[in-house]
Every structure is written in C-alpha cells, then in structure tokens.
Design a protein around this nucleic acid. Structure first.
Length: 287
DNA sequence: AAGAGGCCCTGATAGC
DNA sequence: TGCTATCAGGGCCTCT
C-alpha cells in the first residue's frame, strides 16, 4: 500500500497517540507475515514505554524504553488502526469492538495500551514486524538502503554518477530502494512526469539537468503528498480513519486514456508495464 | 555487478 | 450467479 508519504502520515498520528505511553500487552493472532513475527515480540514489548515513533523510508521505528527498536513495514496492504475502549464493547478473539474503521478480517497484531489498542491489519501479509536490540543493529538494517529524497545525499551528482553506464530504465531506479528509498510505484510516475522524463529512457542517458529535476520533483511530490495526508487509492487512511487527498493531484497515475494535464500538451496518458509494474506517462511531453 | 523474472498473499473487479 | 483471469501502494531471492 504505502509509500513514504503514507507511512509518514501514519507515523505522525501514531506518534501523537502513543508517545510516552506504556504497552500493557501484545496480542499476536497470526505470526505469518512477510517474515514470521519473532516469538519474543510480546515479551520484549510488554511494559515498555514508547519513547517516540520515527520513520525511515517506508519503515516505522518505535523507540522502546529498554533501548530496543520495533520496526514495522506495512508492505502492500498493511494498515494501522486505533481502537479506543469505550462503554459496552465486548472483547473477544474475533470481532472485539464495533469500530467503524476496523476491518473484520486480518487483524494480525494488537498492541494494547491503557484505554486503547493499536491494531495492525494486513490482508496480503506482505508487511512485517522486527525487533532490533540496539542502535548498531538499526544502523545495519538501513545500511543498504539509499538516501531519502529529502536528504542532502540525494543530489544531482549522486544521481548522475549512479546512472553512469546503467542499462536499465530510469523508472526502475526510482523505485529501487537501494538507490533512493521511500519512492514507490505511484510517486515514481508522478516524479517523472513533472521532470518531463520518459520512464523508458535508460538511466545512462539521463543528463545533469534531468538529475536536477529528479531531485527537485522527488522532494516536491513527496512533500506535497504528505501535506495532503497521503494518497488514498484503495483504502489508505490515517490511524483515525481519515483518507488522504493527494490522489486528486495525480497527473498521470491511473489516468490512462485521459488528456495530459501539461499546459498546451496534446498528449494522452499511456499505461505500460515497466519493470513489472504499471507505469503511467505522456509520451508527447515526456522524452 | 547488473539485470530479468518469479514469488510471497488476499481481495476487488472485469469479462465470459 | 458463478466461474476465471488480471491486477494492486513492496521487497526479497535466484538465476544468468
């Protein structure tokens, strides 16, 4: 589901809700996510205070008072829900509370605080939890990932030199987390549109000026999306059940057959499978 | 090392 | 109504 902006939206609302709160208990209904939930997850989380919820790329990072870190990746379909305890709700193993935003199925993990629960739902189970014992492990975990678009390391020179002699198309690298982390399939198309770069173009043919545009538009697209509360194209919501609004700003994503939004451009948006993912672009103004 | 492709999984939707 | 095929915001793994 989520790319950097959506994860950031979840982080913000989650941080507000659970910062400095103590975990009473953890309930795991299904350990079989992308990676098996570690057996000691419950023990290591119990009675820990959440110092803060941070984020790197598409990973949520829970800082625990015992010096450990809980990582949560939402995969394609992971969502986080807050369910407040109120009045006469019955807590059972299958359907516990009548929360309008809580799905009926696939609530795999619950982190229980005093008076409310954080529920992790994930139909496709591509998301995962991981416990890291110390800062070194955390560093190591992210060592292979590329910089986020907001970091100064993600600059024109970095991109240009990375692209030297690369035969693969440029779109492929925008969604390659080892090159730049946080951009996914939707925002890659949007960034290339604003940069007037055809997603099919080989990386080695991307010039300095193009790199400059990629830097600028990556920041722009992601920060605009964060500002709008992320994109809701299927059912993304923040933890309070509120949908994002950036999908209204899409220039190309899911606009196949529609007129190109660029001023005076006569093109029509094309959908094409590039590096195994749907890619949307205008072949008139993206060269 | 770089690139191509497959796989993990469920649900929504389109087409017959 | 009910089948089958295709596609989804991601990332890891293997083979060449």
């Amino acid at each position: 589901m989520p790319e950097l902006p959506e994860v950031e939206i979840v982080r913000q609302s989650l941080n507000k809700k659970i910062k400095q709160k103590r975990v009473e208990k953890v309930l795991v209904r299904n350990r079989n996510l992308r990676f098996k939930i570690p057996l000691n997850l419950q023990r290591l989380l119990k009675n820990q205070k959440i110092l803060k919820v941070d984020r790197f790329s598409k990973y949520l990072i829970f800082f625990l008072s015992n010096g450990r870190y809980l990582l949560l990746h939402l995969g394609m379909s992971g969502t986080v829900h807050i369910v407040d305890r109120n009045k006469k709700q019955i807590f059972t193993n299958t359907s516990f509370y009548n929360s309008p935003n809580l799905p009926k199925k696939h609530n795999h993990v619950e982190i229980i605080f005093k008076g409310f629960r954080v529920v992790y739902n994930d139909p496709r189970r591509f998301g995962f939890f991981q416990i890291l014992d110390n800062f070194d492990q955390l560093k190591k975990k992210f060592a292979r990932l590329g910089p986020e678009p907001f970091q100064s390391k993600f600059n024109t020179k970095y991109i240009y030199s990375f692209f030297q002699e690369k035969e693969k198309n440029v779109k492929n690298f925008l969604i390659d987390q080892n090159f730049v982390s946080g951009i996914g399939n939707i925002y890659a198309s949007e960034i290339l549109f604003l940069s007037k770069i055809n997603p099919n173009r080989k990386a080695k043919f991307i010039g300095i000026k193009d790199c400059k545009n990629i830097v600028f538009n990556s920041k722009k697209v992601l920060s605009d999306a964060i500002q709008k509360g992320g994109s809701t194209i299927r059912n993304f919501k923040n933890i309070n059940g509120i949908e994002g609004g950036y999908q209204k700003n899409f220039n190309v994503y899911q606009r196949e057959g529609l007129k190109c939004k660029k001023l005076k451009c006569s093109g029509t948006i094309i959908k094409k499978n590039i590096s195994n993912r749907s890619t949307f672009f205008c072949d008139v103004c993206q060269k």
